[in-house]
Write a protein that binds this DNA or RNA. Structure first.
Length: 360
DNA sequence: AAATCGGGGAT
DNA sequence: ATCCCAGATTT
């Protein structure tokens, strides 16, 4: 790998860090006095930031640290508390892995978050990126990081036209990041690279005039910035139809169920949900359900229909309301719960929206 | 190597 | 409507 053409390695670092010192954004997990941040804060923030933008994470991070100010307090928490704090953030296994790892650190690492990448990466929920981020930001280790932002910045800087989803290209970018990382300020360097990608070297309409690396950027020189990296061709989303039933008893409680511990929305609560058959009518499906779980249902009415689009599929929820005189059911994982009681439980986003429609 | 796992920001 | 986001884990 040749150096940086017209921009030397040292100049690359100096320009990038100089830009960062001027444009660094304030974030709750960052210190403002050049001090090394709390490794626990770095870890929590980096896990929350996986596939999630900074603006989305900030309120979740504040609430999480308020509830669990230290690694020890997190290790003592239970899964339901963590999921409640993760509610709405998505990728819920991140939260559960965070809890698992906290307990492992207490038991196997004497309560100290490991400094080395090869130790960090053994913890659940910490991969190559997050290990590098923690090691460099919290402990000033000269470890590289390559996230979506860094991929874009480096692919453009070197004018790599190939798809970085190709593992070979990705490995090339990791090597490049390793070479570039500033040994004096690795944490700031890595954050600078990512922040540049998030605020200047953006996917669309990048601000090349404001970029400290435009001198030396091969994509800028050749006018190919907006074509690098190549966009992912979108595929048609499969549609999943669901029938949701909000059953209320005489105590103003609703029947809710806890989702299984694996799969989508694992461990989260929801109203009664079944796959919506296109063969049978809604009322047929509901009466079959009522027989199966032993509930006598009355006042069945359509409440709303809502769509929820995820990365790989689209859900359509047909939501119905109903009443019953029963106070028990055969529903596995079923529970009668008032709207107030539900506040303490973690619901998926679509069921959170359904819940909001039930409030008086 | 490909699929899975959420939800939202930006355009 | 589309692409992407401070990715990791499972298949």
């Amino acid at each position: 790998m040749s150096a940086t053409r017209s921009l030397s390695l040292v100049s690359f670092r100096r320009r990038l860090l100089g830009w960062y010192d001027l444009h660094r954004r304030e974030m709750p997990w960052r210190t403002h006095d050049g001090q090394t941040p709390d490794p626990y804060h770095v870890w929590v923030s980096e896990v929350m930031l996986q596939q999630t933008q900074v603006a989305t994470v900030i309120p979740y991070f504040r609430r999480f640290i308020d509830a669990f100010p230290t690694l020890e307090s997190l290790a003592r928490a239970d899964e339901s508390s963590v999921l409640r704090l993760w509610q709405g953030l998505g990728y819920y296994s991140r939260g559960l892995n965070l809890l698992k790892a906290a307990r492992m650190i207490v038991l196997e690492f004497d309560g100290q978050i490991p400094h080395r990448v090869d130790q960090l990466i053994t913890l659940p929920g910490i991969g190559r990126y997050t290990a590098g981020a923690i090691a460099s930001i919290a402990y000033n280790a000269p470890a590289p990081v390559v996230d979506g932002n860094v991929v874009r910045v480096l692919a453009r800087f070197d004018a790599i036209p190939d798809d970085p989803r190709n593992p070979r290209i990705m490995e090339q970018l990791w090597q490049r990041a390793q070479t570039l990382v500033c040994p004096r300020r690795p944490g700031d360097f890595n954050q600078a690279l990512m922040e540049l990608g998030a605020t200047v070297c953006t996917p669309r309409q990048p601000d090349c005039q404001g970029c400290p690396l435009k001198i030396g950027c091969l994509a800028f020189r050749s006018g190919t910035v907006e074509r690098i990296p190549p966009p992912k061709r979108s595929k048609l989303l499969p549609v999943e139809r669901r029938l949701v039933l909000c059953v209320r008893n005489r105590l103003n409680q609703y029947l809710i169920q806890k989702r299984p511990p694996t799969g989508r929305w694992a461990g989260l609560w929801q109203f009664l949900t079944l796959v919506r058959s296109s063969e049978r009518s809604v009322l047929e499906q509901i009466s079959e359900l009522s027989r199966r779980i032993g509930l006598n249902l009355t006042d069945l009415k359509p409440l709303t229909t809502l769509c929820h689009t995820l990365t790989h599929r689209k859900y359509v929820f047909e939501v119905w309301s109903g009443k019953t005189d029963s106070v028990s059911s055969n529903t596995p994982n079923g529970l009668w719960s008032s709207l107030d009681q539900m506040e303490g439980k973690a619901f998926s986003k679509p069921h959170l929206l359904i819940r909001a429609r039930l409030s008086p």
